[in-house]
Simulated scan of single mutants.
Amino acid sequence: MLKMTTNFTPEQLQIQSFSVAYADEVCRLILSIQREEFGLPVTLEGQADLLNIPDFYQRANGNFWIALVNDHVVGTIALLDIGNAQAALRKMFVASECRGQHLGVAATLLRTCLNWAASKQTREVFLGTTVQFLAAHRFYEKHGFTEIDRRILPSTFPIMSVDTKFYRQTMVWE
């Protein structure tokens, strides 16, 4: 895992769009959380989206953001444009030592993503997760997502093999 301290100030947290200079660090963070922390049987090769983030996410009304502290990736989030003014929230990961409401990494990433979606006039944001990510369920629900049945998902929503729980947020534009 990362050698990171949780002793950082909000000013040290930076959210920016993904650039290829951070590709290796993004992959290491995501895979370590998936495999080591949650024991999911996933590989980098099985996640083609991570092998070409710009072409997969940074197109149409989608994007991919990274959270940086001291120029190290501590979190990620992506918005995949799935058409019809709908999007899939994907790759929401925060290093374990940077989690918690007091640090605000996850909330800042999510706010950035949802603000982008609203600016693109996205009507709905969907996400899939696993039953193991209990803290994630609480986090999404706290931030306005409601659990939905898999059958409600748009046909263009990319279901990952590990996804067993699904959420939706209907966007409100100002």
Rank of each mutant, 00 (worst) to 15 (best):
T164K: 01
K120A: 14
N63F: 05
K3T: 07
A118W: 04
A95R: 08
A78G: 15
Q16L: 13
P41Q: 09
T108R: 14
R151K: 06
G144W: 06
W116G: 09
L31Q: 12
G83L: 00
L153N: 03
A135N: 11
R123N: 10
T164D: 14
L68M: 03
L134D: 08
V172L: 04
L79W: 13
R150P: 01
L29K: 06
E147P: 10
K165L: 11
T164S: 15
P10A: 03
L31I: 01
D149R: 02
T112A: 15
I152Y: 06
R151E: 07
T112M: 09
A107M: 07
F133V: 02
P158D: 03
F145W: 01
L80R: 11
L103M: 10
A23S: 14
L31E: 09
Q47A: 13
N115S: 14
R90S: 15
D24C: 10
T130H: 06
G128N: 03
N115H: 13
V125P: 04
G46Y: 12
N84C: 09
F93G: 11
G46F: 02
V172M: 03
A118T: 09
E147S: 11
C27W: 05
W173A: 05
L103R: 00
R90W: 10
V74F: 00
R138N: 09
E37M: 04
C27D: 14
N61K: 15
N115R: 08
P54K: 05
Q12L: 11
E174L: 01
L40S: 06
Y167N: 03
L13W: 00
I15D: 09
Q47C: 10
L79M: 13
K142R: 13
T108H: 06
Q12D: 15
Y167L: 00
A23W: 09
S155R: 04
V26Y: 03
Q169S: 07
K91Q: 14
E37P: 00
G128D: 05
T170W: 09
L153S: 08
K165F: 06
T5N: 10
S19W: 07
A107S: 14
I148H: 02
A21M: 07
L153D: 06
F18Y: 15
E45D: 15
L29I: 07
M4D: 00
W65L: 12
T170Q: 13
R150Y: 02
T108E: 09
M171N: 07
V73A: 01
L134V: 10
S19R: 10
P158W: 04
T76V: 00
N7M: 07
T122R: 09
D71G: 03
H102K: 15
Q14I: 13
L114Y: 12
F157L: 09
E147D: 03
G100N: 04
H72W: 00
Y57Q: 06
D71L: 01
M4S: 03
V69I: 04
F18P: 06
